[in-house]
Design a protein around this nucleic acid. Sequence first.
DNA 1: AAAAAAATATGACTTAAATCATATTTAAGA
DNA 2: TCTTAAATATGATTTAAGTCATATTTTTTT
Lengths: 143, 143
Amino acid sequence: MFSNSAKYAIKAVLYLAVNSSEEHKIMIKDLAKPINVPRHYLAKLLQDLSKKHLVSSIKGPKGGFYLSAKNRKEKVIDIINAVDGEERMKACLLSLEGCNANNPCSLHHLIYDERQAILKNLNKTSLDHLAEHIKSGKSILPL
Amino acid sequence: MFSNSAKYAIKAVLYLAVNSSEEHKIMIKDLAKPINVPRHYLAKLLQDLSKKHLVSSIKGPKGGFYLSAKNRKEKVIDIINAVDGEERMKACLLSLEGCNANNPCSLHHLIYDERQAILKNLNKTSLDHLAEHIKSGKSILPL
DNA sequence: AAAAAAATATGACTTAAATCATATTTAAGA
DNA sequence: TCTTAAATATGATTTAAGTCATATTTTTTT
């Protein structure tokens, strides 16, 4: 469904949503451990997200990563798309070029509606909404 | 969702469901072309499926691959599981070990129901059912 | 200003998935 | 029985994803 990298990114961003703020930035090494993601790999991912303004970062002493208020408003799908590209989540499950509603591949009707529903959920759910869930114990964010 | 290999396998098996029979076996090279899958890679996949009795094959001149009546009764999910393993389709989307209904990960409720519905569809749909769809023009099986 | 602590940038290495190639076995047909 | 045509088995190569390492830049603190 989505790549390993996207999973890592989601875990990282949610951890930041729950634990960081502009006043309390988090360094790579303190982020990599609790979410169980290889440190250097995570650094690359976050640098990428930083360039795309999906996470915030400050260099130097007292620096680190955090989510701004604006960052927190982003939807889950934006993180996924930033990492995996816009196409991956939309592509035909059999990777058939010509597959669409008028010309459906054989698996299309077995999957399409549900897939759209998932997409819709990912499209409407913001990071701070998920962070609230985690804080209130409705969901978890472990390794 | 599922691997490239599983996509290839599904395309191949559906092609066989539509075009082959015990009286009309299909050689690897005549199968690889229309479904646009690398020939040698496809051979490996089919040999694997053959060992697991999901496709039928005969060696030697006049040999080739085909689907027996029994093969045609198999469900789509069986092909997928044979190629990707039983776990892949069931695993937590964030690959969290501890994720389950009692202890849901953050994306769990965004996806779970729809995912189950897809699984259910793949579990109840047989190859010959899909083949009928293709034959009657309700769906396509191109590259 | 200098030193130290952080992200950033770049690239090398490793692993697994995907692809390709070749030798072996089996069955059909002459 | 010999030749040929197919799958089968095995393994090598390539490519892409994932991982690791190091040098550079920026910012804070002294």
